[in-house]
Design a protein around this nucleic acid. Structure first.
Lengths: 235, 235
DNA sequence: GGGTCCAAATGGTGTTACCTTTCCGTTGAT
DNA sequence: ATCAACGGAAAGGTAACACCATTTGGACCC
């Protein structure tokens, strides 16, 4: 269900897209900086066609703008498609990682409670039992201190609810949430052992969703996420 | 501040991207359908290069997947980047319009209250006074029954708050919200005259943001949006 | 000195031709 | 019926070219 990245291409343009995307997201190529196709060709040792394809993709993400006679201009962040999974990934991989985690966490606090509420209304029978099962597993793993496995099940927990919400835009955030959860541990922003309260809340959300109690699912999820944010704040 | 679409390209690939994107978003080209570059070349009378660029962009949006020997396969909606402004636009332009409006409205209910709360904390002095001013204008226009101008100011109102939130992901939704607001009137989902309660709530949000009262801004915005949704529901 | 206009340099845009690589589907042998 | 070999279809990639928009800079004239 939760797939690792790299669905993407094996093509020649992919590595260069990745490199340039990272450099722009990292600010190494600041807004206003100008690239040329010739420069890209030479730097990566590829043909014009390939360079152009990479550029077009960056352009469709709003990271650059191509103008005749001028070249390929890096655009300011306000113009980026900051919801594009690749852009999110690039920003998470660079120096803006902490800032991106913050904005994503805010987004989670906004969306996930509503998604949980919607899931309580719209989930299939299979999804309801699944989420209860995963919550139980989380308690077991959490109490046993199995952190990495805990995280993977946690990713699954949130993905189920986002996808069960019946709103494909919420569902599309599942991969992003997965990236946040995984990235958080790498940054050392997780407690070394999940707090009991978090385990209670996971179970409360699951039970509310399974029982179709929408408002309850929403509040429980909100409480869960607020705690998540509190744990991330310095101190 | 709020710009009309068509920032994009004047290139040859743009029209064909637009056409194919629409057809896929509309379901005319269902998941699993296979295109070929030759087919695209012939249909649009363009060279291979141009066809490939359009295809690459669609691929980066997750709408299609290109495989050797097979062709260009349309992917299921679960794989789309449903937050891409172009994808949103295409879905709003086709038969899925009502569904897209529903999911976007859910997203607004999730995000905008939090954004208003954040704006109350983070907005600049200029933004605070601006939002109050726009709210006052909204009351005047609403009471005068100037619907189209009302809508444009309403777009501005929401854009200010999303951008003042200090979260660039929220800010990026400003254009989407604009599309929703404009699209809603075209669908006849707006009351012919804004209800007084909505005018009160706009002013309440603005006052709370200007005064830095975060929680109050959040609740007022939530109330406003819940009313918006209620007005959209059939009946 | 400063404004107008023309010309050259620059760099993306689009086309064509050609070769390479992958891998689906068929075919044929076991 | 199973599986391996093969032909060919379609994308992947390269190269060379003509074209065109735009900028830059200089000539020219007030």
């Amino acid at each position: 269900m939760i797939e690792r990245r790299k669905q993407s291409g094996s093509g020649l343009h992919d590595p260069i897209l990745e490199k340039l995307g990272m450099e722009i997201a990292a600010g190494d190529l600041p807004a206003g900086h100008v690239l040329t196709l010739d420069g890209i060709q030479e730097r990566f040792g590829v043909s014009r066609t390939v360079a152009r394809e990479a550029m077009r993709i960056l352009e469709s993400m709003g990271l650059v703008q191509s103008r005749r006679r001028v070249g390929i201009t890096v655009r300011p962040i306000a113009d980026w498609n900051v919801f594009d999974p690749k852009v999110i990934w690039w920003r998470l991989s660079g120096p803006a990682r902490a800032a991106q985690l913050r904005t994503l966490t805010e987004l989670r606090i906004a969306v996930e409670p509503l998604a949980a509420g919607a899931a309580a209304r719209a989930a299939t029978a299979a999804q309801r039992s699944h989420v209860v099962e995963v919550a139980a597993t989380l308690r077991r793993l959490g109490e046993a201190g199995e952190l990495t496995e805990f995280m993977e099940r946690d990713v699954e927990f949130h993905a189920i609810l986002l996808q069960a919400s019946g709103n494909e835009m919420f569902g599309a955030l599942a991969d992003v949430v997965a990236a946040v959860l995984r990235g958080r541990t790498q940054l050392g922003l997780m407690p070394h052992k999940p707090v009991p309260q978090a385990l209670d809340l996971h179970e409360a959300v699951a039970a509310a969703v399974a029982g179709g109690r929408s408002a309850e699912a929403e509040t429980a999820m909100r409480a869960l996420l607020v705690e998540v944010r509190a744990a991330m704040l310095p101190g």
